[in-house]
Design a binder for these strands. Structure first.
Length: 896
RNA sequence: GCGAAAGUGGCGGAAUUGGUAGACGCACUGGAUUUAGGUUCCAGCGCCUCGCGGCGUGAGAGUUCGAGUCUCUCCUUUCGCACCA
């Protein structure tokens, strides 16, 4: 072994060895149980950021750990390569998005390799290649034919200056980010996935997902938002024609408190009223300004205007005014809501503002109604009806039943289950995406592209200019003939939402190179994904869409038909895993309902910010790498200076790494300076995976220092001669204690990585073990054998986290043996036996002392020993204790 | 606005089932080694107090022999909200 720790050369050697031996090629022919470990694939934005390093290190730790535990591991990687940033870069640098994207992929692939990830690169997928999106288009045509995909109009953000559709991200304070023009809502035809048809299954199957974090499942359940309510109508007459205004409510018990109805600006009644009311028309026009984001809608000022129209309350027969409200969404529910100002916060504010009547209809026991009392009642379903005629005294359930029955009798309503979830609109008026495989024919309508004409290839030499859709300006792309009648026809020029590509890539990894379908029979070997890892920001949308796609692919028969029985008996299909998620239905992919058995949602990577204020008050953000922080004599930061000029800078908050705050740390710089293992170790040590991780330069140095300490301890030991690890024989008390700590650590680290996935505590336990070993320092033959045993175990335990270093340590400890072939160490139960234990002594729950006793001491003897304890004697001062509580193995509490 | 989390020393975090609060690391202080800086090694390090001791897990209440952990109210911060990925 080299005397010093040289990460650059040893990492290069280890990676070369893994490459040469094909160590991470995942084969379907293995006898071992399979473990499919998937990290969310990156968008090729240019270079890796710390979030990627964290994500992929977590995946690699679990992959290597499971390999050592005897699993046949598959860890793939690919590129989520379509998207908006490529178009922005294209405009900025005048390069086609394709060229920019492929260059980024080449650079980032090299970076990933330098991290030493155990990836099977033969399975790489790139979503912007025709080989990939061909199957997405194929699936689209099947779903279109089944009616799962359909067309309807929907609102988008329209920039009237650039004549282009804007993403929500491109709308800043209601204005286009480039033009600065006020954004308008515009209705255009789009294709939708009928995800609402799967809402019940997507909700119900959450119960299968034992290996998912509770909060993610709760967020998904809330997002799907199943509610039980009543859909009912307010009849009205216009131009002597009878019609109904439909609304939906979950609070039918308050129906007698309705004092007005609010409709969306786009509602037909609003449009009708505006014809004869220029002021209303202007208001409706005004409602079209501003973006479509729900957060904006919910926080903007609630505005409204009376249409002058009246509708009839279905139960009281009263005339109720119809208002237009800017907070009512046309695309959600009926586009109209009943308003009960007495018992709804939003209606209350609206009624106060426009001086509309407020009418109480429920009450809560012992409380007096007032303008503020509604606040306490809002959201609770504990009230009973009052001032509601025949419904007086009924509680929520009784009132809803009675009211729904009465509405049904009049043919004006019924109970209805509704979902908050809306259908998924996937049309994008952009260039850099998967072309939608539809041909528009004047006589045949929307015709899906036949299989033999797929893929519809996206031309790759285009530079978008930021106005309109490039494909819509390319006759050579859109001019075509109808596959049905042969007449001249126009190809669809919209592309798909990039969420579509990322909804099925996990399945494609199982079948690299497959040209006969989306996947082949290899999918049955690998699916489902055993462990999925990715950012918490994907907790709702991406994960919901991928779950949806698994069900779609299952129902379309992507995984083969009639092959289920055969695949179910496949010897290597989906063997059970220990631990979380083990009860997910084990079946071939064809019958698989859920794609991801276990899920880790990793937190963000954050870093301190530094800035200077310029004369115009603007903040100039300075990268943490250019700053020195000054601490006082107690370690508290008192200031910071810019290294370049030695002058002070202002310390800002600790925030998510971003370009705008210039607080990103380039992983490449860390790898170049300290090596990949130090970067990996720091990221795994600084916080558990689900929490946010604060970047710290000195923390990185600490991680590097630990690796040097492990290296030195191993080197110094090996220099004295490699020995056989301890297995049996007489041990000194110190050696016995050393071995006990070693085997306790093996047990703890196994649990920390395998079950708890708290890599930070696994690393801390190894640090403690090394500290103990350095102190142990026993040079007798038995002592050296125990040291050999300990050092080997440390190398094995740390191998999943810092694999390059451990590969080299192992070569030193066991010349001629390869770390790649090693199993995870098992704890020696006999070494764990302990004769004496320490018990805490409490008086009234406060710690007063401790007691070391034989493990076998019984309760009565323990009580006597505790009472005889000096501190107890002093506190009791001769009095009798009221009670003594003995918690075996832990403490004795004396209640005085 | 709605939904989901989080809050523990100067800092990141640990405390896994209600039972020793602060493991491990960083920063800091003192010492040793070193040509110097750095490195490395040893010791100290929650707060108040000379000490005895007291206080201490965002704030306030509650349950319990015992609460960082359970319950309620409040405050603050972060994430998501359907065209960023």
């Amino acid at each position: 072994m080299q005397s010093n720790y040289h990460p650059a050369s040893l990492e290069q050697q280890a990676q070369q060895h893994w490459d040469d031996s094909g160590a991470f090629a995942a084969l379907e022919t293995s006898d071992k149980p399979k473990y499919y470990c998937l990290s969310m694939f990156p968008y090729p934005s240019g270079k890796l950021h710390m979030g990627h390093v964290r994500n992929y290190t977590i995946g690699d730790v679990l992959s290597r750990y499971h390999r050592m535990k005897g699993y046949n591991v598959m860890q793939p990687m690919g590129w989520d390569a379509f998207g908006l940033p490529a178009e922005n870069a294209a405009q900025a640098h005048n390069v086609p998005p394709a060229a920019w994207t492929y260059d980024n992929i080449d650079y980032m692939r090299r970076q990933l390799k330098s991290l030493g990830l155990g990836i099977d690169w033969a399975r790489e997928v790139t979503t912007c290649t025709p080989e990939y999106y061909r199957w997405e288009q194929w699936l689209f045509t099947r779903l279109f034919e089944k009616g799962i995909i359909y067309k309807k109009t929907s609102s988008v953000n329209w920039d009237p200056v650039d004549h282009t559709v804007l993403a929500n991200e491109q709308v800043i304070d209601g204005r286009g980010w480039r033009s600065g023009a006020l954004v308008e809502k515009r209705d255009i035809p789009m294709y939708f996935f009928r995800i609402t048809q799967y809402a019940d299954e997507l909700l119900g199957d959450l119960d299968q997902l034992d290996g998912w974090p509770e909060q993610v499942k709760t967020m998904q359940a809330n997002w799907i938002g199943k509610s039980f309510g009543v859909r009912f109508a307010f009849p009205y007459v216009i131009d002597n024609k009878q019609d109904n205004l439909w609304v939906y409510t979950t609070r039918a018990d308050t129906i007698m408190g309705v004092t007005f109805v609010a409709v969306a600006a786009e509602h037909p009644l609003a449009t009708f009223a505006a014809k004869s009311n220029p002021l209303l028309a202007a208001f409706i026009e005004d409602c079209k300004h501003g973006g479509t984001a729900e957060a904006d809608m919910a926080t903007m000022e609630k505005k409204g205007m009376d249409t002058g129209l009246k509708v009839t309350h279905p139960l009281t027969g009263e005339q109720v005014p119809v208002w237009v409200g800017n907070y009512v969404l046309m695309g959600y529910g009926e586009g109209a809501v009943m308003a009960v100002p007495a018992h709804d916060e939003r209606d209350f504010g609206f009624a106060k503002k426009y001086n509309l009547p407020i009418k109480q209809s429920i009450t809560v026991q012992d409380q007096t109604f007032s303008d503020t009392a509604w606040q306490e009642w809002y959201g609770s379903k504990e009230g009973v009806c009052v001032y509601s005629g025949k419904y007086d005294g009924l509680n929520y359930d009784q009132a809803v039943d009675a009211i729904a029955a009465d509405l049904a009798e009049k043919g004006l309503g019924e109970k209805k289950t509704q979902f908050r979830l809306r259908d998924w609109g996937i049309s994008r008026q952009r260039y850099w995406g998967c072309p939608i495989p539809i041909i528009h024919c004047a006589s045949c309508g929307d015709v899906p592209v036949p299989d033999d004409q797929l893929p519809v290839v996206l031309p790759e030499d285009v530079v978008p200019d930021g106005t309109g859709s490039p494909l819509a300006k390319m006759p050579q792309f859109y001019e075509t003939t109808c596959p049905k009648c042969g007449a001249a026809a126009r190809r669809e020029t919209d592309t798909m939402d990039t969420f579509v590509e990322s909804s099925w890539y996990y399945a494609r990894y199982t079948s690299p190179g497959c040209t006969t379908g989306l996947v082949d029979e290899r999918a049955n070997h690998w699916l489902p994904v055993d462990q999925y890892i990715g950012g918490i920001e994907h907790a709702i949308l991406h994960l919901l869409y991928a779950r949806f796609f698994q069900k779609l692919m299952r129902d379309v028969g992507v995984f083969g038909e009639g092959a289920a029985a055969q695949n179910l008996t496949h010897p290597h299909s989906n063997p059970p895993l220990e631990g979380e998620g083990a009860n997910v239905a084990l079946c071939a992919a064809q019958n698989l309902d859920e794609p991801f058995k276990n899920l880790i949602t990793q937190g963000m990577v954050i870093a301190p910010t530094f800035y200077r204020e310029e004369s115009n008050g603007k903040k100039l953000w300075i990268n943490p790498a250019e700053v020195d922080v000054v601490n006082d004599e107690r370690g508290r930061p008192v200031g910071a200076t810019l290294r370049a000029d030695g002058l002070p800078v202002i310390i800002g908050g600790t925030e998510k790494m971003s370009k705008s705050k210039n607080n990103g740390v380039d992983p490449q710089a860390i790898i170049d300076e300290y090596g990949a293992d130090t970067a990996r170790l720091f990221m795994m040590f600084a916080a558990p995976p689900e929490q946010s991780l604060e970047w710290s330069d000195t923390g990185v140095e600490g991680a590097f220092r630990f690796l040097k300490r492990v290296w030195k301890a191993t080197h110094d030991h090996v220099e004295q001669g490699v020995v056989t690890a301890y297995s049996s024989g007489e041990l000194s008390a110190a050696a016995k204690a050393m071995r006990r700590q070693l085997h306790q650590t093996i047990q703890k680290v196994d649990d920390d990585i395998g079950r708890r996935k708290t890599f930070n505590t696994a690393i801390a336990a190894n640090m403690e073990l090394l500290n103990a070993l350095v102190k142990f320092n026993d040079t007798t033959p038995t002592g050296r054998a125990v040291a050999q045993e300990t050092l080997e175990a440390i190398a094995l335990m740390l191998n999943p986290i810092v694999p390059h270093t451990c590969q080299a340590l192992w070569s030193g400890l066991r010349p001629g043996s390869d770390m790649l072939d090693q199993a995870y160490p098992a704890a020696d139960q006999s070494a764990l036996v302990q004769d004496e234990i320490e018990l805490m002594i409490q008086i009234n729950g406060k710690l007063r002392g401790s007691l070391t006793v034989a493990k076998t001491t019984d309760k009565a003897a323990l009580e006597q020993l505790a009472l005889a304890h000096e501190a107890v004697q002093k506190q009791l001062a001769g009095a009798q204790p009221k009670k003594i509580i003995v918690v075996p193995g832990r403490l004795i509490n004396i209640v005085a």
